[in-house]
Simulated assay, not measured.
Amino acid sequence: MASASIQSLNNGNGDRIILKKISSIQTLSIFFLSIGLLNHVILIPFLLSTSGRDAWFFSILTIGLIPIWIYILSRIIKNMNNDSLTNWLENRFGKHIKNIVLFFIVIYLISLVLATTKETIDWITTTFLFETPSLAIIIPFTLLCIFLAHSGMRSIAISSSVLLPLVVLLGILVSTGNIPTKDYSHLLPLFENGYFNGIKSFKYSAYGLMELVLLTFFQEKLTDTISRKTLVFLCIGLVFLVFGPLTAGIAEFGPTLAEAMRYPAYEQWRLLTIGKYIEHTDFFSIYQWLAGAYIRVSLALFLITEVFNKKTNQMKIGILFAVGFLMVIVSIVPYSNFKFLQMTQTFYYPGALYFLIILSTFLFIGTFINFKEGKKHENETIQK
């Protein structure tokens, strides 16, 4: 940090550069909102439909993957040594392989944006705004996400830090307020369909952890190197963001009804009453969902522009609006919500998980390779 600051000051505008960086704590806020929406809401129906009552038990077993994942991720981050992903890939694998990898990364990030947007708009139009045209919802949301993404990583971090505390407080409210309606005997018995039936849910519960590889896309923007302890805390927190709504949904509705619900986490809000006269508290869920979707989409949009780091500002704005146009198109296409659910459960999220595993393995292998060093030695040999 000190050396980076001195280098920036030598460039004559150090303060401005430092202000654009974010801290590890702010990084936690970003991921708890972004991946939190995924783990806490979007993936819950998949887990219940594939594993039923056993889903909560196998979600806890995901903790066993954390030590291996932390080692791989921390090694990649350490080896990148505060360099951007684009430069690091070129130094390790050469320009051509770098371009291929970045192409697939951009495709993945665009798919993340579109899947999250479609899920969000479908939820809003099927639970609250039945008669409201989708365009009236998606256009303001898209413009806000584009504005935040163009404002930079620090703006995303500050927005996350502001939005997260209320999201956490509302989560505590719904979890504690619904205690009288919970019957934890619904969590047992386990393994009714065999001991290994629940293993199928791993491809969903592990996906949230694998998304932490996005940290390598912007680690050079951190004021401090994110420690292994911080990564462990983040991983455990993400696992419990799956475990919490799973156990609550099964305890409140029973495994059969919870499995049949499209949005079990949202339905928990509909049970909550405050005293005798305050009901219909489910409007609080709007804030929770939109806060997570706002940060998740904005982060992905920002990372897309970072891949094109040598482009002009006008070109980056053009890229943002091009992806924004796709967001609008995907949201207004008359595609059934349940068909979308089936498609994402069967193809998209398992495919995205496999892609992140391959990408993480590729980056991990890159920590043992130095393309430029090999090329330098080869040139020296030729000269001799």
Rank of each mutant, 00 (worst) to 15 (best):
S84R: 00
S84E: 00
S84I: 00
L85K: 00
T86W: 00
N87C: 04
N87W: 02
L89D: 01
L89Q: 00
E90F: 01
E90Y: 01
N91S: 07
F93Y: 12
F93I: 11
G94L: 00
K95R: 09
I97R: 03
I97Y: 04
I97N: 07
K98V: 11
N99L: 07
I100M: 06
I100Q: 09
V101G: 06
V101Q: 08
V101T: 07
V101C: 09
L102W: 02
L102P: 08
F103H: 05
F103A: 09
V106H: 05
V106C: 07
I107T: 11
I107A: 13
L109T: 01
I110P: 08
I110V: 10
I110Y: 03
S111I: 11
L112T: 15
L112W: 14
L112P: 08
L112S: 15
V113D: 02
V113H: 02
T116E: 10
K118L: 08
E119N: 11
T120A: 12
I121V: 08
I121T: 15
D122T: 06
D122A: 07
W123D: 13
W123A: 14
W123M: 14
I124P: 14
I124W: 05
T125D: 02
T126S: 06
T127C: 15
T127P: 13
F128W: 09
L129D: 13
L129E: 05
F130Y: 10
E131F: 04
T132I: 09
S134G: 14
L135Y: 08
A136Q: 05
I139M: 02
F141K: 01
F141T: 03
L143D: 00
L144T: 03
C145A: 04
C145H: 00
C145P: 00
C145F: 00
I146W: 00
I146P: 02
S151K: 05
S151L: 01
G152Y: 00
M153D: 04
R154Q: 06
S155A: 12
S155F: 02
S155Q: 02
S155P: 03
I156T: 09
A157L: 03
A157F: 01
I158H: 07
S160A: 06
S161N: 07
V162H: 05
V162R: 04
L163E: 13
L163D: 10
L163M: 14
L164K: 02
P165L: 09
P165R: 03
P165M: 07
P165E: 06
L166A: 11
L166N: 14
L166G: 13
V167P: 09
V167M: 06
L170C: 11
G171C: 08
G171I: 10
I172A: 14
I172L: 12
L173V: 13
L173A: 11
L173E: 15
V174E: 12
V174A: 08
V174Y: 09
T176M: 14
G177W: 04
G177T: 04
G177P: 13
G177R: 09
N178I: 02
N178K: 10
I179T: 15
I179S: 13
P180N: 07
D183S: 12
D183Q: 15
Y184T: 08
Y184S: 13
Y184C: 15
S185E: 08
S185T: 11
H186N: 15
H186Y: 11
L187S: 15
L188A: 14
P189A: 08
P189K: 01
F191L: 10
F191H: 09
